[in-house]
């Protein structure tokens, strides 16, 4: 089977996936508010919810963008008294990971004061995307 066909197939498929990957990573997807499974409690995340917004980041050890995401979210939320930032090691909270259907790291959840997940970003978000997501929550 000395042929260039396998290489061509692999490169075409991975390029298509790669373009989709780069376009979707970091994008904050707004969640349907009626989704009851998205209810997050202080007990689940091991910390009290923020007065207006809680930003919950799921990380893992084998994740390069998790560090950058932690630095960004810490920095953005540091000056906001009504916003709380919590980072969770996904590996240690597999039950929670399954409940919330976290599939990759970093995954960031934007949670309102009632514990309702209103937005979710897979991959490292940009500063503007984080600010927009936080300011959209009342």
């Amino acid at each position: 089977m000395k042929s260039l066909l396998p290489i061509a197939l692999v490169l075409i498929a991975s390029t298509a996936y790669g373009i989709w990957y780069q376009r979707t990573r970091g994008r904050v997807v707004v969640k349907d508010r009626k989704d009851k499974a998205g209810q997050i409690t202080a007990r689940m995340i091991g910390a009290e919810l923020g007065p207006r917004v809680t930003v919950v980041q799921f990380s893992s050890a084998f994740c390069t963008p998790c560090r950058a995401t932690r630095a960004l979210l810490s920095d953005v939320t540091a000056g906001m008294d009504d916003v709380k930032y919590v980072e969770i090691d996904a590996e240690e909270q597999l039950e929670l990971v399954r409940t919330l259907d976290i599939r990759s790291t970093p995954t960031t959840l934007f949670v309102d004061r009632n514990g309702q997940e209103v937005g979710r970003a897979m991959g490292a978000p940009k500063r503007a995307q984080v600010l927009t997501a936080i300011s959209a929550i009342r």
Binding site: I19, E91, S104
Partner: peptide
Amino acid sequence: FLNAAFNFCLGCEIYLL
């Protein structure tokens, strides 16, 4: 190739799964 061309993070995508 995904890592080289798109900075794909394999651990991010498959470790949790």
